[in-house]
């Protein structure tokens, strides 16, 4: 892609004529003011033409001038008009530019601060979440281990008790005994799992809370980003404009003059490296 194609902006020409050459103190005529109020209904090319014509006519009526002098006068008026309009455009929305910029800066600072806070909170949240999740899995493993250990003892006790009951009766109901034991053990395990679940649920709620909070914060981050962009656009302020070159940096291998350019780049680099080295040496 050619650089020139990417650069579509019109130069802002800050280097022009010093401001002190803006004509000052021209008479403020009532008729001019009245007409000026209607001016925003007129297109700029119409306006330019009208100004040029009326200046020309006015001068022709009042003075005897050559065509060249007339042209020069019209040009002079045109450029002064531009300078004056340019000078006046420095006042924005009726507020002096400096005050306006200050106001805008305050807005920006506020949003920046909000964003910073949200970002910091989000970071802290993410940290907590990670910690919480780690703790949860540790706790879960621990609970399972615990329940398995205590369960083993309980199981043995229960089995012993059931065996005692059946031993006191006759030995012919061995099948029933087995079944009952199984059943009892099963129900015990079920209960233990339930209790683990209950304990885990508490932690999970906490994590869910974190996650919801994070979603919200992310959302509000996006919002402030959005707000910043909108505000910057509306007020035309310096919030920073992202680079267009994200992943396209570097000379393209398809470039016609790839070899030559590569060589040029490395000699510029070498010269700068030498310059930097010479400085630190």
């Amino acid at each position: 892609m050619k650089v020139s194609e990417q650069m579509s902006k019109i130069p802002r020409g800050d280097d022009g004529v010093p401001e002190d050459e803006v004509p000052k103190g021209a008479p403020e005529d009532d008729t001019v003011q009245q007409h000026a109020r209607k001016l925003n209904l007129v297109g700029s090319s119409q306006l330019t033409k009208a100004v040029a014509e009326s200046v020309r006519e006015g001068l022709r009526d009042q003075f005897e001038l050559t065509q060249a002098q007339l042209n020069a006068a019209v040009r002079a008026v045109g450029s002064r008009l531009m300078l004056r309009l340019k000078a006046q455009s420095k006042a924005v929305r009726g507020v002096p530019k400096a005050a306006f910029l200050k106001e805008v800066q305050a807005d920006k600072d506020r949003i920046d601060a909000a964003r910073e806070t949200a970002k910091r909170e989000l970071d802290a949240m993410l940290e907590k979440l990670k910690l919480g999740q780690e703790q949860n899995s540790l706790r879960e493993a621990e609970l399972v281990r615990e329940s398995q250990a205590t369960g083993q003892v309980e199981d043995e006790q229960l089995a012993g008790r059931i065996a005692a009951i059946f031993a006191s009766s006759d030995g012919d109901s061995a099948k029933i005994r087995e079944k009952i034991t199984e059943l009892a053990l099963g129900s015990m395990q079920g209960q233990r799992e339930k209790s683990i679940d209950a304990q885990m649920a508490e932690h999970r709620d906490q994590v869910d809370g974190f996650e919801r909070r994070i979603a919200k914060l992310t959302n509000s981050l996006e919002l402030t980003e959005e707000e910043l962009k909108k505000m910057a656009k509306a007020k035309n302020i310096d919030l920073g404009v992202g680079s267009i070159y994200r992943s396209v940096q570097g000379l393209s291998g398809e470039d016609n003059d790839y070899e030559t350019k590569k060589e040029l780049m490395s000699s510029i680099f070498a010269a700068n490296l030498a310059l930097q080295k010479g400085k630190t040496a």
Binding site: L122, L126, E225, G242
Partner: peptide, 21 residues
């Protein structure tokens, strides 16, 4: 207003902030 906001760029960026602390 002569600033061009590159939508893609800014989006990239907010995504970054969520992952890189």
């Amino acid at each position: 207003s002569d600033q061009d906001y590159n939508q893609g760029t800014t989006d990239d960026n907010s995504a970054n902030t969520a992952t890189e602390s």
